[in-house]
């Protein structure tokens, strides 16, 4: 698996809601080799504070081979990243990790919570381009309309059905995005892909495993390297006593390979 370290110019910066940003980066080598579900490691500032790179899912690859990331400014690194202007450049390493595996069924359900929605755009576009006849449904959740509205409409623009849920009921279903899974009906013919906060993915994984639906989840952990070198990104593995490494065997895992609490 080839990864590249590139100085990428920011060609576009969009604000998609309070503290939510989309950056478009000129990194053609990374773009051409990227698979949906993979991530990049971004140095948010030159120098040593904060020291480590931050991991971000590859949100989308544009038609002209640019890499997009979507993030929420919540801590030191992401706030610095939010302040980067068009024309400035960022040191980016990628593409990294193992992404989504193709669905075994013709019905695909994407479940995204918060910034976990990010990689589902690239995956949805990839599935739509594959030309395989399939039905794709996206279930998207966030805290408020403010956070979700523009992402939900961008997702619908790709050409798939979108259903929303918000914690405060300001857009779509008032409640958890997991509640919307019930609408898939009883038939097991759905392949489910989930990315979002851990409790959300746990709930999705549990429902899918109970109903025999194949489910892949994209996990997050603290990461020092993203390169399979530090072994810092361990999550307990279902099989035996060992650990899975999110940056190497993941970030996407089959739900049944993960040791859920």
């Amino acid at each position: 698996m080839a990864a590249y370290q590139k100085t990428a110019t920011v060609s576009r910066r969009e604000t998609l809601g309070e503290d939510i940003f989309r950056l478009t980066l000129q990194a053609p080598e990374i773009a051409r080799h990227a698979q949906p579900g993979q991530f990049v490691m971004v140095k948010t500032v030159a120098g040593s504070d904060p020291l480590l790179r931050r991991p971000f899912s590859i949100h989308q690859i544009t038609d002209d081979d640019q890499v997009q990331i979507l993030f929420k400014a919540l801590g030191k690194g992401t706030r610095l990243l939010a302040g980067v202007a068009v024309g400035q450049s960022l040191d980016v390493v990628g593409p990294l990790g193992r992404g989504f595996s193709p669905p075994a069924t013709s019905h695909v359900c994407l479940v995204g919570g918060g910034m976990g929605i990010a990689p589902l755009f690239f995956w949805a576009s990839h599935l739509l381009r594959s030309g395989r006849p399939m039905e794709i449904l996206a279930l998207l959740g966030a805290r408020t309309r403010e956070e979700l509205a523009s992402l939900a409409s961008d997702m619908a623009q790709l050409g798939l059905s979108v259903r929303s849920a918000t914690d405060d009921g300001s857009l779509g279903h008032h409640g958890l995005v997991v509640d919307l899974l019930a609408d898939l009906g009883p038939e097991p013919g759905w392949s489910v892909y989930a990315c979002g906060p851990y409790p959300m993915m746990h709930a999705v994984a549990r429902q899918c495993m109970a109903s025999g639906r194949p489910c892949q989840v994209s996990l997050e952990t603290m990461m020092a390297c993203g390169l399979a070198a530090c072994l810092g990104c361990a999550v307990p593995s279902k099989a035996g006593a060992g650990y899975l490494h999110v940056c190497k065997e993941g970030p996407v895992f089959a739900a049944e390979d993960v040791a859920w609490p």
Binding site: L51, L52, M222, C230, L231, G232, A234, P236, Y243
Partner: peptide, 19 residues
């Protein structure tokens, strides 16, 4: 097999690890 997570934490100009 190593230690349970979290295994790394960032600190000022450095990091802690307990791999």
């Amino acid at each position: 097999a190593g230690n349970p997570p979290p295994r790394v934490a960032e600190t000022a100009c450095g990091m802690l690890n307990a791999i």
